[in-house]
Nucleic acid binder design. Structure first.
Lengths: 243, 243
DNA sequence: GCAAAAGTGTTTGTTTTACACCCATGG
DNA sequence: CCATGGGTGTAAAACAAACACTTTTGC
């Protein structure tokens, strides 16, 4: 047991005093927008034009407005940059290091979202906005590399437990595309037969009885995600790491 | 593809303008402090003295100070209420609904922590501070029930994947205590033989070659957590739900 | 007919589950 | 000697892993 002093303790949940004294902080959201081009996991970044981060890449973010919900702010940022709505998005972590932003105390709530990369039409005016292969990103502005790393980790945790990967694929996809996606996100290689067996046996995907065309080899069958299916707990572990 | 307008978009990560206009928000931390009394999972709550939440229970929280890191604020709240330091703590989620707090816009970062309930000496002056069985809590002040629920879910996710439960137990514990803990946190029942086999085979616990005393039955062997051991991915699933 | 990728089953090893009796202690 | 909970093993089922050949298409 440890002892401690006993003067009364202020508590935001019991006393209303002094809140104004602390109104010295800004809250922002930062969006890690993931896309998949068929081979590698990508993230949408913008070139920072702040002096000290000149030529560094940063996440898309903005201050949360006084009358705006956090999730709404994140969706707004996503919409403004990609034109997309109704996209898979998840809050991940909040970063509040004292000097993380040169403008003062800015506490940022990080989100990641999964978009179909082909549905994103980059704005002409956003000339500093580009997709980057996640695994090639070495440094970023602010603490954004740390935010990215944590969001990648969260995505990896999610995708092995929950069918979120479909948000990165077109409506119709082949098993090879699906496997490429899992391999890109997780940085591992799977046995093709076992991978296909697993997904087919889980009933997560539905055969469309269509095939690819314009390929110069045997065309693959196309599938769609079965929204009604349940994810079955499984372990894609003990696989060959390629990282 | 979707089209969207093309006026320039403000971005906290590229432009420094207008940040002051948004300094209209307070940031707080809320701590979900879990303890285990040998049978049920408990959480430390304080009675709110705010008029509209009179007689409702609330989490322990406070405004983050302008020069204070988020984690530091959470540890401060924990220290002020329990006297404990160096406790397992994890940030979980940030809640920012517009009207979640009557004092104005208060965005709160929720943490949960795991403490040894017997190490907590409640302050005499904190007369409204008590341990509550998590499963008996029906409603709380503010959005705290939602925060609690999400923290419980997070703890459940963690405890089956990572050896965090030991933070809730005394240094020396029996396998029955360990099993009670897992059953209380997860709301399930395990087969005793399988549970013991699993933990012993994982090498997570170390036999102290000591036994309980003062029990009126065969005394159980005592174990300690082996910090060096690796958690082996496992599934405690398909168990009998008792919720 | 060749190149390129699609598609497909079986065997083996490991993990999980289900299940019941004897043991040590205090009173 | 009784009550209480502690401690233990085995068999069957489910799952995961390893592995190679045939098929279809475009050129």
């Amino acid at each position: 047991m440890q002892s401690h002093t006993s003067f009364p303790i202020k508590n935001i949940n019991t006393h209303l005093t002094e809140i104004k004294d602390y109104f010295k902080v800004a809250v922002s959201v930062d969006c890690v927008i993931f896309g998949f081009d068929g081979n590698v996991l990508k993230v949408l970044l913008i070139q920072s034009d702040l002096a000290q981060y000149k030529n560094k890449w940063s996440l898309l973010g903005d201050i949360v407005r006084p009358d705006e919900e956090l999730d709404a702010a994140a969706y707004r940022v996503l919409r403004e940059r990609t034109g997309l709505e109704n996209v898979y998005m998840e809050q991940v972590h909040t970063f509040g290091a004292l000097n993380r932003h040169p403008a003062g105390r800015v506490i940022t709530v990080a989100y990641y979202s999964l978009v179909n990369i082909h549905h994103v039409q980059l704005r002409v005016s956003d000339f500093g906005l580009h997709w980057h292969a996640v695994k090639d990103i070495k440094q970023m502005a602010f603490d954004h590399k740390q935010i990215l790393d944590i969001c990648v980790k969260r995505l990896q945790d999610r995708i092995i437990e929950h069918p979120v990967g479909f948000n990165l694929l077109p409506k119709k996809f082949s098993l090879r595309e699906l496997q490429n996606l899992y391999e890109a996100v997780l940085g591992v290689k799977f046995d093709r037969r076992n991978f296909r067996k697993k997904f087919l046996s889980m009933g997560l995907i539905e055969d469309l009885h269509e095939v690819e065309n314009d390929v110069r080899h045997r065309p693959a069958k196309l599938y769609k995600f079965n929204e009604k299916a349940m994810w079955k707990n499984t372990r894609f572990l003990n696989v060959n790491s390629i990282t």
